[in-house]
Simulated scan of single mutants.
Amino acid sequence: MSQFLMQLLAVAICLAGMLAVLIPLFVMIKYRDKTVKIPIDREQLQRLPGFGLQREIRDRQFDLLGNMSMSICIVSIPFAYFAVLAFLKTHNFPTLIVIFVVIGTLWCSWRTVKVFKHLTRLRLGHTAELATAAELLQLQAKGYQVFHDIQADNFNIDHLVVGPNGVFAVETKGRHKRLSERNNKHGLRSHECIYVDNQLRFPKWSETKPLEQAVRQAKWVSQWLSSSTMFDVTAKPVLVLPGWYIKLKSKPPFPIVNHKQLAKMLANFGNDRLTPEQINAICWQVAQRCIQGPEDKK
């Protein structure tokens, strides 16, 4: 092997760990961008307090992590290069080191794919909740109280709305839109979702769990507030699918809406008539839970 090829191979081996992360990440990003998209444009969402600062904090955190990783590479790679080059010249690579490097790079690649998938779901869910929260701001001008991310018993309530016409447990579900029209099981357009026979039908798949989850969480809210306030409180479930056009082929047991329909729908939905005293009692309990967290962690 020529000196140049040996040096090139030594550099490739030294960079193998970095490439084990960057290559799968590049492939996953390209695949995601060609197959799915977030149904909401983040740049068109109404900004919540601290949105710009939150984004800048996140960027600076990535800068710190990048600087730390770069400093480690700057210090370690030159030494690693000469060590690898020495092994290549002697044709005597320690077997255990080779096994460790191969297994380690494969593990890093697998972890990169797994974390990227999870991060993609989190980003979608975060965007969907931001879209819902932005629409709920309209209700505050009408005297409604809106709470977000209430920690319950091993789960959370995305949004809780309290007003004169009742209490609403709002569950937000983010779902990617598929860019390809292949395997369209229900003859729907890419932005359409149908509710029929207690089932959500998207262009390429069907779901029932979001419906069950919304009912289960509203039931928990009802039990919690009833026991905390000492009067009967019935929280109504609401399911929000931001960015999707909802078609109702049968009557749902509770509202299933796009985020842009949410504020208007909640203001005109529900038969409860809560007094100002009841609203204050409910809001006090919710505010205390938002501060203290779930009761089992006290």
Rank of each mutant, 00 (worst) to 15 (best):
A141R: 08
Q288M: 12
A12E: 02
K260S: 12
K297A: 11
I291F: 11
Q140N: 01
D158K: 11
P237R: 03
A12G: 11
Y144T: 02
R189V: 13
W220H: 06
V238P: 04
A134E: 01
F62Q: 15
D149H: 11
R32H: 13
R289W: 07
I282L: 05
Q285M: 10
M18P: 01
F87H: 10
V102D: 07
C290A: 12
L88A: 05
V215I: 13
V11P: 05
C108R: 07
F93P: 06
H118G: 06
A20N: 01
G143L: 00
Q288H: 14
E207I: 06
Q145F: 00
K177G: 02
L106C: 11
G52K: 08
V221R: 02
A134K: 02
D232S: 13
F82T: 06
F26L: 06
F51S: 15
K37P: 03
L9H: 10
K219A: 13
C14G: 10
L22I: 14
L8Y: 08
L119A: 11
P24I: 00
D41L: 10
P252L: 09
Q7K: 01
K249F: 15
N67L: 13
I194D: 06
P94M: 13
I150W: 01
K297L: 12
Q44E: 15
H176M: 12
R60V: 14
A80N: 10
V196W: 01
L19H: 05
W224E: 06
M1W: 12
A83I: 12
L96K: 08
I246T: 03
W220M: 05
R216D: 13
R47M: 11
E181F: 09
R216K: 04
M265Q: 04
T234S: 08
Q261V: 04
Q261R: 08
R178N: 10
P237H: 08
G293Y: 04
A214E: 04
V215Y: 11
Q285L: 07
L241E: 03
Y144Q: 03
G66K: 15
L122D: 06
D153S: 14
Q223R: 15
D272M: 08
G243W: 12
D41M: 04
T105A: 09
C193D: 05
L19V: 14
